[in-house]
Design a protein around this nucleic acid. Structure first.
Lengths: 176, 176
DNA sequence: TCACTTCTCTGGACACTGTCCAAGATACTG
DNA sequence: CAGTATCTTGGACAGTGTCCAGAGAAGTGA
């Protein structure tokens, strides 16, 4: 990346922080840049490691402070994929998650609504900020792998076919 | 509770463990009984405390072992309401959760489908065991409390009204 | 009923994740 | 540029969940 590009990039990040009403500090720029640049799901410590890998000096407490600031201002989204697994992502497009119970992989599932909240609970009087859907099961890769070994998961697959009725599908709002 | 009732109750728990293909052990009966008897959401340590409060001797590692066994056999359900917050419940009726960002309360939201998975992701080739929805926002009680103090959350409430379109509601499958 | 096999429980150590604190540093305002 | 409010730092700490080897219990078949 050239210096000019780097400057342009930084200016964009600064603008996004200001628009969110946040002070512009180095740690915030670093964290936002890391989450923004690489797709995928990050833990707080992975973000810390990524920032430090660039030679920056940053404490763990700061990473959590920054994350809280970015999340509460909507620049970063957090998904819980299990106990103690805080998944951080750039909040460019609202989406949901599929967690594989075999390999632990977390897969993004698009949400065609794209805005929050995309679902409404049956809870009169509540103010809803967002709705997050987490699917659990076995990812296509693990399904294919076990199928090639002789279909030892035949029993479980029945639950999938039994749920294929269109009235129970949200393909309409997940883009499927 | 009379002895006769206790015996009947135990027999029922034993039957449920056997039906799930699990060995019948004291810790499993205790944990299942605690989760079954009291409504609400339990952390693993709260389950441990509740079992010990009855005079039973149980280690923390065992509680986690038992929880994993009961969850994987479908007798108990787990919801993640935040980092490090494993919420345990008896899996009698499938439902979802609303987490209040002000007071932290977790509220059950009924799911009229009642079976798993109640939603399907746009993820071809995957086997889906379950879909969990977690709403975040402010619970009716916190909304009412701040409204009575003068509507200091007026800005946030706009997000609620903007999402009331029926095509973005899942009242149909949550029983609303 | 008994022996045997397999699974489960135990208690402690450990890892991971997130929070709290006071002091110092920094960003923004006028 | 000074002042103020906010942020960062590093360490200590708490909460949650996992791992391990040995001991114990449940289920099975005779």
């Amino acid at each position: 990346m050239t210096d000019e590009l780097a400057q342009h990039r930084k200016a964009e990040l600064v603008q996004r922080l200001r628009q969110a009403g946040l002070r512009v500090t180095q740690p915030r720029l670093w964290v936002l840049d890391v989450l923004d640049r690489v797709s995928g799901h990050w833990s707080a410590d992975e973000v810390l490691a990524a920032v430090r890998a660039r030679g920056a000096r940053l404490s763990r407490a700061t990473v959590y402070n920054v994350i809280h600031a970015l999340v509460s201002s909507g620049l970063v989204m957090v998904a819980d994929a299990g106990p103690g697994r805080m998944l951080l992502e750039s909040a460019r497009v609202w989406h949901h998650h599929f967690v594989c119970r075999d390999c632990g992989t977390v897969i993004d599932v698009p949400c065609v609504i794209g805005a929050k909240p995309c679902l409404q609970p049956a809870l009169p009087g509540a103010e809803v900020d967002e709705a997050q859907v987490i699917w659990r099961g076995r990812c296509p890769r693990c399904v294919a792998r076990s199928a090639s070994r002789g279909g030892e998961h035949a029993r479980q697959t029945s639950s999938r076919t039994s749920a294929s009725a269109s009235d129970r599908s949200i393909g309409a709002w997940t883009g499927g």
